[in-house]
C-alpha cells in the first residue's frame, strides 16, 4: 500500500474517531495530528483502528516522534512487510 493510499484510509479512520469538527478534505501530509481533535483516550482508539484496519502490529509508544499525518503514513508504510 502506498503512502497516499494509507493517508486516504487514515482520513476515514480519523473522521470516525475525532472529537472535533475538521475539514477532512483539507487534511494533508503536513497536518499536525494534534490539531485533528484527539484526546489521550481517542488517540488509543485511533491506534487500535489502524492496527485492525491495516493489519499491522506496533506499540503505541513507537509513535512518540510522529507529529504529522505524513510522518504517521511513512511510519505505517515502514511497518508493512
Amino acid at each position: 500500500m502506498t503512502q497516499e493510499q494509507i493517508i486516504e484510509k487514515l482520513r476515514t479512520m480519523m473522521r470516525k474517531t475525532s472529537q472535533a469538527k475538521v475539514d477532512w478534505d483539507a487534511v494533508n501530509t503536513d497536518s499536525p495530528i494534534a490539531s485533528l481533535g484527539f484526546d489521550s483516550l481517542s488517540i488509543l482508539d485511533l491506534v487500535y483502528d489502524i492496527q485492525q484496519e491495516l493489519g499491522l502490529e506496533f506499540e503505541a509508544e513507537e509513535l512518540v516522534k510522529v507529529k504529522t499525518v505524513g510522518q504517521l503514513a511513512a511510519f505505517l508504510a515502514g511497518k508493512q512487510k
Partner: peptide, 10 residues
C-alpha cells in the same frame, strides 16, 4: 490481548 480495544472499559 492486543485485540481488545483500549477504550473497552469506558
Amino acid at each position: 490481548i492486543k485485540g481488545v480495544r483500549p477504550t473497552t472499559i469506558p
